[in-house]
Amino acid sequence: MPSFLFWLFAVLMLAGGVAVVAFRNPVSSAMSVVASFVGLAALFVGLSAFFVGIIQILVYTGAVMVLFLFIIMLLDLKDEQKRAPKLAPVAAGFALVIAFVIQLVGVLAKMPATTAPKLDQAALASAAGGFNEGGKIATALTAGRLPDVQLIGHTLFTQYNLPLQILGVLLLVATVGVVVLSKKHAD
C-alpha cells in the first residue's frame, strides 16, 4: 500500500478514535467509531487481509455499531451532563496513556524497520505447491492472485474446526443469555 493511502486511513482511524472519546453525545461517538472502523478496514485491505477487512465492515460497522445505536436510541440518553471535571482522575488518565505511548515508542524505536515481503506472481506461484493441484486455491495462486477468502476458509475448516464449533456454541449461549437478560421479570 502506498504510504500516502496508509497515512490517510491511519489518520482517519485515529481521528475517529479521538472523536469517540471527545464527543459528548453518544450518537456522535458511535458514528465516530464507524468512521474509525472504516479506516481500520481500509488498513486491513492494505495488508492484503481482504476478508478480515470486509467482516470488519460487515460485523462491526454493520451489525455491532447498529446495535449500539439501537441501544442508545432505546435508552433515550441525554448528553453527558457537564460536570466540574475532577482534575485528579483526568490527569491520572492522561498520564497513564502518555506513559503507555512513551513505552510504545520506546519499544518500536528499538525494532528494525521491516518492509512487507512482496506478494508478486513468483512468490504466490511458489506457494501453490502446498495445495491440491487443480483446486481453486492452487489455480488462483498460480495465476498470481491471492485467494484470500479461500485460504481463510481452508485454514478455518482444516486447522481450526474444533474452535469454530465451540465458537458456534458460544454464540448460541450469548444469544440465549441476551434473551434471558432482556426478558422482563414476570414477577
Partner: peptide
C-alpha cells in the same frame, strides 16, 4: 480501569525496559 492500565504499563516496564 485505571489500576488495570497502570498494571499493564508496569508489566511492560518491568518486562521490556
Amino acid at each position: 480501569a485505571f489500576a488495570f492500565g497502570l498494571g499493564v504499563v508496569l508489566v511492560i516496564y518491568f518486562t521490556v525496559f
